[in-house]
Structure formats: structure tokens, C-alpha cells
Design a protein around this nucleic acid. Structure first.
Lengths: 351, 351
DNA sequence: ATATATTGTGGGATCGATACCACAACTCGT
DNA sequence: ACGAGTTGTGGTATCGATCCCACAATATAT
């Protein structure tokens, strides 16, 4: 872009609406109306202002705007670990939906650390976000946000039941369905590999597992519920110990994809062939589960859809702050694969 | 929290510094100094103000602050597809580093769409971010941001060479190393599965591939460079066709993890055993590559470290806008696995 | 005792955009 | 020709926090 022979150099200060107004020969009020479309402006003037704005490379200052308007078009998204694809997909779904609906997203990864979660909540308040979508790791952040009158939607798990909206899947029902499937395959000793009991996810998955055992008339053997750490190594170690014991289970139900990876590695290490020597089922489908041989039976949750639904719910709440809280329960499907069956039937849908 | 017998209800308006000042019996100026720590405040007064702020649940309005200060403590992160774990890890690394250094992150997923990328850039300008980290899909967004005097760090690939900082890995060298490895395994017909040539990533990986062929005295057969779409399906189809041809290659080098998945599925479908009937190597290590049997040889880039380095570079640039642009080249390692070798040696480091 | 630092506080302008209100110019019906 | 309505524009206060500057009060030096 050249004017005469001189290269255009951008000014060192950004243009303000005042400069746009002067360039167009109108007042700031008129310029504002021309650019935002709120209020009367003659067509010719509107064009002149638009042209001046574009010439000057004017971009509205969202700070000044939202300071005046006392509201922002941005939402906060708080997830526990972006490197875990479940959260990444959730964030992607939320972010895209927000963009689609004209909101910008402030994303914070709190690494599952409660203190960081509260710090993130404070940052969101400082930024005056219109609302927050969070996968909570404690009740503190949500409480803090709600006290500040900022709408919150809890996703995946609940810490503030009834106090805010939520988007979850039917953990209990899905866990029950998978466990029932294992029972139907003839298994009598089915272990549950689980990392926590404090979150609704862990608790409900465990309840579903117990439900199915009871419905199937199987004893609920406490030794078969194996608590473990949250990472692959811990899960692998726990699974190794479990599978080396004399009365080892014939099937393992891993409560999430990380634990499933640990179990898978343990089984591979011990040379146990699936599904005959050991069956494995997981909560949370992950790409590798359909890449390995045999594939791993898993409950597939659409994390991206959860993110979308959460943003949707949040914006409805923003539009109507007075409405009663609601919980959206999304369905999940069980992907049957070679780790539990020899002839693989088509997907089963639950929830 | 109860006072007397009445439940405390939060006020419907958020507290401002003026209210904090009044509660503490000081002026707004003093309250500001007490809270920010800029300027003189008597110790007793500081405590009184802090207490008042905490009682009122005061949280600073970042909008008002940055409007006055004409600067923000937030950066923009622009990635192409959060569902792709490469970008997710990159974003996680960037986000965490930013948080660590006292910045908040605005994350946008532009889905690899140039128009969305430019829209995202405009949103960043409106929000007056201090800088932007981006995996560019065209030159437009970066140019726009630079014209607005907003520092940009391009990550993974370059569109604005020399005009801004960048963080990349040694694509050419890594591709050369992998291809050389395949040649050393005795392969003479090595196909390159690649989805694009317009980005520095694709171009350099291809150059590295060609380098190695030439160095190994092999003919550079154009038919062995297979262009394909960017998704798994397209890659699988291309690989299927390639592997069904009468003079099929004995090795495939997939230019990224998505294409590798397509190739893997194609090989599985055709029942080709690895590494004897077919060898497969990939650029971009993904979790499934170490879960499957045999494992897939791959160039492992530390996406999280790239994100960290990008934020680091960005903040240095913000601190010293006048310095010459720099390009940070991170190293990558080649993970040798069963898809190319029978006895698996330890990792080879390149770059 | 007076001059000079030091310590501490408040007043008021400022950042950029918006939106209410007043008002001007013009159209139209009677 | 006059009042009522429509169309269009500008002046000004405002959002919340910061920070420069003036200035008061006290401490220290000469």
C-alpha cells in the first residue's frame, strides 16, 4: 500500500473513535452510532465514517466499550488439563460455540489444582466475563463466582448441585451398561480400576458398576475395587499387581481413559491376550482404543458436544438470570470392541 | 457466613474502589495505592483498606485498569484445531507459561480457516492483548496484528519470515533423519504421504525427505510423493491406493500424525504386517503410536515446550519491542519403534 | 529557629467509548 | 401557516481505576 512515493507507516498510537470522527468531519457520538449501528445516522455519513475508520485502521477498544456498557461479550472456560484430549475436545467445543454466538473465550487450564482454580476464577471476575464454563475440581471456585453474581455451568462433574446449571452424561447408567455387558460375556470376577471417589464422575461410575453386579446376582467383592493414582504409571502398577494375584479377575473396567491405558500396558507386559485371557473395558473412548488390536470396548462421550451444550446453557442463563437451574444430561454410547467380544456387534446406545 | 441472624446477601452491584475507600475511610487514591502497592501508604491504612476490600468482596475491574494504563496483562493464543493433540499440547504449554508469568490467556481455535483467523486477530486487537502466539494458516492475520503494533510469535510454521519472532522445530533435519533411517533399513522405495506444500512444515519435511534420498543415492520418484487431503479418511484412501499398486513402496513416511493414522488403518485393512511387509514412520508422535503393536517410529516434537517457548519469546519481545526478530529452533527426537525395526534401539536425537 | 527531607494523603484529570438528552432541520397534514 | 412528528446530529456525563501533582504533617539537618 503506497501513497505517492512514501511507504505508509502506521502511527505509533492506535486510532481512537475521536480521530475517526474528526477524519469524517462528525462528532464522536455520530461516529459511534455509525459504527455500532445504534441510533440514527444518515446513510452518507455512515459510509464516510466507515471509510475513515477503515483508513485509519480503527478497531474498537473492547475495554472502554465494556467499561461503559458494564458488560462483556466474553466467557471464561476453565478446564483441568488441556493435554488430556477429553478436556481439549470439551474446550474446543465450547470455544467454537462461543465464537459462533459472538463471544470470545478466555481459557484457563488449572491443572486440576484447587488453588489455581480459585485464582482462575478471580481472573475471570477481574475480566468481568459474562459467565464461566468449568470442569470443577472443588466447590470453592464455583461458590466464589456465584457470590460475584457470575453465572457458572459445571461440566462433566458436579460440585455445586442445584446452585448452578450443569452439563453431564449419565455416568451411572453408562457404567452399569458396560458392567452388564461384561457379565453377559460370562465374567464373574470383574475389577473396577478407579482413581477417585470425591467427584460425581467417580462416584457414579462406581455406583453403576455396583448396580450391575447386584442386578446380575454377583457378590460385591471389595478387593475388586482397586483404587489407584490418577496417572498412567500408577494405574499400570495397580493393574500389574491385580493381574499377578492368584485369583486375578477375568475382566477389568477402567473408570477413565488414562487408567485404561495403564491397564492396557499392564496386560501387554504380562502377555495376556484379549479377550480370552482378560477382557478390558473403559470409560472414555480415546483414539488409541480403536487403533490397537484388539480394540478396547469403551463408553464414548462426546466431549465436544458437552462443551457446546455448556456454552449454550450458559448463554441461556445469561439471557434469563432468574430461571431455575437446570442439568443437561447428554447420552453416551458404548463402543463394543475386541477387548471384550470376539464378534464385534454394532454400537449400543445408552442414556 | 452469618451476621446476627440474617444471611448475608451479596449486593447486586459489584463493589468499586470508591466503596472500598469509603468503607476504609480514605480517598480513592489511597485505596488504589494500598491495593496495588504503588506509592506510599501507612501500614495501618494499608491493612484497613485490604480488610475493607476483602469484606466487600472487591475484585479490581481489569477493564478500567487497563483502559487507564493503556496495557493489558493478557495474551492471545490462536491455534488451528484444539481437538488435534498437537495444538492442544501447544496451547496447554502456552497457557500455563502465561499464567506462571502473570498473564491471562485468550484462546481462539480458528479451525484452520483463514477468515476465522483474521476475525480472531481482530478480536485480539479489540481486547488490546499485549501480544499473540499463533499457528498461522495464512499471512493475513499476522500482517494485520503487526500493522496494529501487536507483537506476534509464529509457532510450528512460518508465514511472515523475518517480520516477527518464531518458534519452530528443525523439520527438514528431522525428516532427513527419519528418511535416512528408512534407507539404512534397506528400503529403496519410500513413499511420502503429505497433505500440503504451502506451509513451511510441509515444504521442509518434503525437502528433508528429498535430501535423504539424494544423499543415499536413490532416485527421486515423483510418484512416491503422494498428496492427500488433511483428514484421516483422505489419508487412508490415498494409502490404500498406494499400497494396492503393483510396485508398492516398502516404506511410508507420513508427514504428520493424522496422515500416519490413515496409513496405519490402510495397512491394517490390507493385512500387511510390520515391519517386514511394510515399514511406517511418522512426523509427530501421538500416544497411540506407542500403544499399538508394533509401535510406530515417529519424530517426537514437544508441543508443550513449543508453547512455553513461544510465550517466553513473546514476553521478551514485549519487554524490548525494538530488538531484532529471532527464530527459536527446538530440537526433536526420533522414536524408533517396531514399525521400522525389529530390535528397537534407544531414541535418536536430532536438531 | 529555620530550611530541607521524608512520609503520607487527597483532588482531579484521564483513558476510549457510549448513551441520554436537547435541539435543529425538515416533512406533512390540516 | 402552524403544530406535530420524523430524521439526524452534537454536547456532555459516565463507567472504574490510576497516577500526577499539590500539599500537609512530621522528622532531620544546619
Amino acid at each position: 500500500m503506497r501513497y505517492g512515493s512514501a511507504e505508509i507507516v502506521p502511527p505509533d498510537r492506535r486510532a481512537t473513535i475521536k480521530e475517526v470522527a474528526e477524519a469524517a468531519g462528525v462528532s464522536r457520538s455520530t461516529a459511534s452510532r455509525a459504527l455500532t449501528g445504534n441510533g440514527y445516522v444518515a446513510e452518507g455519513v455512515r459510509l464516510r465514517v466507515r471509510q475513515a475508520a477503515s483508513d485509519l485502521g480503527y478497531v474498537v477498544d473492547a475495554m472502554a466499550r465494556s467499561l461503559k456498557q458494564q458488560s462483556t461479550r466474553s466467557i471464561g472456560v476453565l478446564v483441568s488439563d488441556l493435554r488430556n484430549e477429553f478436556y481439549a475436545n470439551l474446550a474446543a467445543g465450547a470455544s467454537r460455540q462461543a465464537t459462533r454466538l459472538g463471544y470470545t473465550t478466555m481459557l484457563i487450564d488449572d491443572q486440576g489444582i484447587p488453588d489455581d482454580e480459585v485464582a482462575a476464577a478471580e481472573a475471570f471476575v477481574a475480566l468481568r466475563v459474562a459467565g464461566v464454563v468449568a470442569t470443577p475440581v472443588s466447590a470453592a471456585a464455583t461458590k466464589f463466582l456465584l457470590r460475584q453474581r457470575i453465572p457458572v455451568v459445571e461440566v462433566d462433574r458436579r460440585f455445586s448441585d442445584g446452585e448452578c446449571d450443569a452439563v453431564v452424561i449419565d455416568n451411572r447408567g453408562s457404567a452399569r451398561a458396560v458392567t452388564r455387558h461384561l457379565i453377559e460375556q460370562g465374567h464373574r470376577r470383574i475389577a473396577l480400576l478407579i482413581d477417585e471417589d470425591d467427584w460425581t464422575t467417580g462416584r457414579e461410575r462406581r455406583e453403576g458398576y455396583v448396580d450391575a453386579l447386584e442386578a446380575g446376582g454377583l457378590p460385591h467383592d471389595g478387593d475388586l475395587v482397586v483404587p489407584t493414582g490418577w496417572d498412567v504409571e500408577a494405574a499400570r502398577d495397580a493393574a500389574l499387581e491385580l493381574l499377578r494375584s492368584p485369583d486375578r479377575p477375568t475382566a477389568i473396567f477402567a473408570a477413565n481413559n488414562v487408567l485404561a491405558e495403564g491397564a492396557w500396558r499392564a496386560a501387554a507386559e504380562l502377555g495376556l491376550s484379549m479377550p480370552d485371557e482378560l477382557s478390558l473395558a473403559a470409560f472414555d473412548d480415546a483414539p488409541w482404543m480403536s487403533m490397537v488390536t484388539p480394540g478396547v470396548t469403551a463408553v464414548a462421550q462426546d466431549a465436544s458436544a458437552m462443551g457446546r451444550a455448556a456454552v449454550q446453557t450458559l448463554l441461556e442463563r445469561i439471557a434469563d438470570p432468574g430461571a431455575g437451574t437446570k442439568t443437561v444430561v447428554l447420552s453416551a454410547s458404548v463402543k463394543l470392541r475386541g477387548s471384550t467380544v470376539t464378534a464385534v456387534p454394532r454400537d449400543v446406545r445408552v442414556g
